[in-house]
Write a protein that binds this DNA or RNA. Structure first.
Lengths: 341, 341
DNA sequence: ATAATTTGCTAAATCCGTTTAGTTTTTCTA
DNA sequence: TAGAAAAACTAAACGGATTTAGCAAATTAT
């Protein structure tokens, strides 16, 4: 590896002080009363030699990094990767870079990631938190690191977060199915104590109870292999032939659910109507197109950035109230949830 | 922000030298003949105080970071996010973290990202390179930074890369359609001079020429908005009503293509057969399921990591031949490309 | 002509680890 | 029991920037 040129090298070559160079490079030439002549000379030299500041040294000294750490559950998931992309775009415009990592919902890994980000002086965190990192998150609070949670949050902690109204999301989905005349509406979800999942279940239950109908609930273990999930849904459908509509709590479940529906030789929506939670680009072109509870991706990512920058501007978490945004999801009605006729 | 504890602090508190602490923390206690008693004392203290090394300082001194920079075209794209996820998993097991960024195929942004990674001492790069960064890439070569290109490469540069045999991928797709009896096979692709796109076009052309058939080519500008893409494909189909099969060069085009096919009121595969390039989880559950040229994701990500680590082990690029792997894609045949009957 | 400013620039401390080249103390050998 | 060798640590330089405090020369004010 070619050793890179440093400010010291430039200082030696041009026979001036390192401080002077630093001021010039940081655009503080005027402020520090460096002559235009010298400033130009340095800048030219820098350009000629293709000099780049060592960001490590800079961050070490300043404590700032112009980097935001984004910690998502699984970057391969369309929801998270879309958010990541949108956040990256916005942050980039503000001169910040994003580095992202996946937790795979593993608290140990997540804690490691948080510490790695901390020890690299990221300026802020955006986190989808698995259960089990409550301590680490409250450490972020007390240590006054700017951060925002999203997708889910810890009710017991007073943190900033941006989430969607999951309860309402599930509720309007079920209510739409009710209006269409479906009566035996199932909810296929993950067995999870994460807030977003709990709320979706609550929304489903609320709508079913209000309509005085019978719930049909299938909770699947997070660890199940895809084929296992298909089998579980498949046998669930076989056992409950009266089910005429299904709300899937996540896209991943919807995917396996479609497979199960195929295996049971059911037609959407004639035999069974379907709604997914989280929209997906492909849902629009499915045959039939799939109705979905859609999270406001743009709004979500903008809010995340806004909240985080607010915190960063204020220099941390102990300055005032926490900011908690709850965005409204939208039901995008397509043919998969419409009664024939 | 609470100021964090440093080795100096520990040194002062325990009244020993900073070097000693460093040796102990780095597991060099034996080697440096530090007594077990002192080592234990320090380790206990470190645990008690929840001390974490400052990774910036460490990297600054050592030049290593245990971080790999992954630069993809668009993390929101299922292909790239899947690769990212798989690479992350493997790297994590080796004690490396991944930080990833999207280029959006913008050379300027990509160069910035590469420089940012460089200035943060990442140990290696994995890059999907847009055109226009050839100079930067050859700089990586001369500066002896370990890196691997993937998805596409620069024929004029002698670098490591892992790609798939795009020509064969497109060719076997068309040949399959020919075997099924389709005669008017269209290729919908992006106007691009990136190698993967050029090769896919070559594969299509080769298969069509060998069969002595008429090509039907639609090249779409990369910058087109989604709706524009739909319209272009739609009117392409309207103008060429004889087309009985389409190979889409990317998933994104397939998505817009499905929409266009719907608008033209065509049925898959009866009116028009369809094959996508790059498989997608949802293709399996489409109605009908969609045939796809599938990249060997596991193999791809493993190869990338293997090649990169080889380079990193050798300490850079000027030690020996470049490693260029070409993986074979697989045609996953589903109903969308089967002739009725 | 001298003091007070202003201009233009620099020295040195600092951020926090790593690592080389010792130094001091203890133990062993002759 | 002197001298060699081993054991147990440590001082200080280094990596590459930022930033405070301050110095010398040139201007301006008096």
């Amino acid at each position: 590896m070619n050793k890179k040129i440093s400010m010291d090298d430039i200082a030696r070559d041009l026979n001036i002080s390192k401080s002077t160079i630093s001021f010039i490079i940081n655009g503080k030439a005027k402020e520090m009363r460096i002559s235009d002549k010298l400033a130009t000379k340095v800048l030219d030299y820098v350009k000629e030699k293709n000099y780049n500041r060592n960001a490590l040294a800079q961050s070490l000294r300043t404590g700032k990094s112009k980097i935001i750490g984004l910690i998502v559950e699984d970057i391969a998931d369309a929801f998270f990767s879309s958010v990541a992309r949108l956040i990256e775009e916005r942050a980039y415009k503000k001169g910040y870079k994003i580095i992202y990592c996946s937790t795979e919902d593993n608290p140990k890994k997540t804690i490691e990631l948080i510490n790695m980000f901390k020890s690299r002086n990221v300026d802020g965190f955006i986190i989808t938190a698995p259960r089990g990192i409550e301590r680490e998150v409250s450490l972020l609070l007390t240590q006054n690191h700017p951060f925002v949670l999203f997708d889910r949050y810890f009710p017991e902690l007073e943190t900033d977060y941006v989430i969607i109204d999951n309860l309402t999301g599930a509720k309007i989905a079920v209510e739409h199915l009710l209006r269409e005349g479906f009566k035996e509406i199932a909810f296929v979800t993950l067995a999870s104590d994460q807030t977003q999942m709990v709320e979706r279940l609550n929304g489903y239950n609320m709508a079913i109870t209000e309509a005085a109908l019978q719930p049909h609930l299938l909770e699947i273990k997070f660890t199940s292999k895809p084929e296992k999930v298909v089998q579980q849904i498949s046998s669930f459908l076989a056992r409950n032939k009266n089910i005429d509509a299904i709300l899937f709590a996540t896209n991943y479940l919807a995917l396996q659910g479609f497979e199960a529906i195929n295996r049971q030789n059911l037609k959407i929506p004639d035999d069974v109507a379907v709604i997914g939670f989280d929209d997906h680009a492909f849902f629009k072109v499915f045959n039939p197109p799939i109705t979905a509870v859609s999270q406001p991706m743009k709004n979500l990512s903008e809010s995340l950035i806004d909240v985080l920058f607010k915190r960063m501007g204020e220099g941390g978490n102990n300055s005032g109230e926490s900011i908690q945004k709850v965005l409204q999801p939208e039901l995008i009605i397509r043919k998969s949830s419409l009664k024939k006729g």
